[in-house]
Amino acid sequence: MDYLYIKALHIIFVVTWFAGLFYIPRLFIYQTEAEDKVEPAKSILQTQFKLMTKRLWYIITWPSAILASIFGIWLIYLNPFWLEQTWMLVKLAFVFALYFYHGFCQHIYNKLQKDIIKYSTFKLRIFNEISTIILFAVVFLVSVKSAISWVWGVVGILLFGVLIMLGVKLYKSIREKKSWDKAEKEIVNED
């Protein structure tokens, strides 16, 4: 198979893998929030979110992870000198981190399928941003390679992660304020 076709397939499956990893935590958040609903809405939502996560996880995310890895290994096989490049070693470290993240998503998925809710929606929102940080790191490493020091690149990614976490905290405080304001209006309207 031609190198460019293998590269194209690798990129396609990386994109679909990340799509699954971006969406699955959102479904975890929705399923966790559904726990606070009253019946029958709670049961209906829980059933629907379990089905959606199962389909996303086993029809898109897992196959994409496996195929992205197969084509990535194939590319390294065709270009073994990449393993001598610092940027590639750092990239592979981030890919390893992505598999760790994927495995932790599997752990959360297994718990939620059994109706075991261990994490708050706030923690899940923060967790959701990890894949974004890894994506930025990998894309920058592959795009700029040795044009910048990988150390500064990692520092930049860490700072980007801090900004994302601050954004999540800001979103939480705005959301809580809106909930508080809504509760106050309901109390005033009851009087």
Rank of each mutant, 00 (worst) to 15 (best):
F140W: 14
L9I: 03
I29N: 03
V139G: 05
A147D: 09
E176W: 09
F96T: 13
I117Y: 13
T32D: 03
L159V: 10
V168D: 04
I116K: 15
H107K: 14
T53H: 01
V138E: 02
E190K: 15
P80K: 10
L83H: 06
T47R: 14
E190A: 12
H102P: 03
I157V: 15
V90A: 07
L56C: 05
Q48F: 13
F127K: 06
A41R: 14
D191F: 15
I73S: 03
G161L: 05
V142T: 09
K118W: 06
D191A: 15
L51P: 02
L166P: 00
A41E: 15
N189S: 15
F13Q: 00
I126E: 05
V15A: 13
G103H: 08
H102I: 07
E176H: 12
R175Y: 10
K50G: 10
P40T: 11
E186M: 14
V188Q: 10
I134K: 09
W74M: 01
P25L: 03
I76Q: 00
L166A: 13
G156L: 12
E184W: 12
A65M: 15
K7H: 00
A34M: 05
R125E: 04
R55C: 04
V95N: 01
S120Y: 04
S120M: 02
I157T: 13
L163K: 10
V95E: 00
E35L: 13
I133P: 01
I70Q: 05
Y109K: 01
T121L: 02
P63F: 02
L163G: 14
I133S: 06
A147Y: 08
T47K: 15
I6W: 01
G103W: 05
V142L: 11
L98C: 04
T132Y: 12
K50A: 11
R125N: 09
V90L: 06
Q46L: 15
S69N: 09
T47I: 07
I11R: 01
I157W: 08
I12N: 02
N189T: 08
M88I: 13
V90K: 07
D36E: 14
K169L: 14
K50H: 03
V151P: 04
A147Q: 15
K7D: 00
G103T: 05
D181C: 07
M1K: 12
K54T: 11
S143D: 05
L67M: 07
S64Q: 07
F49G: 02
K182H: 14
Y109V: 00
A137K: 06
K123V: 09
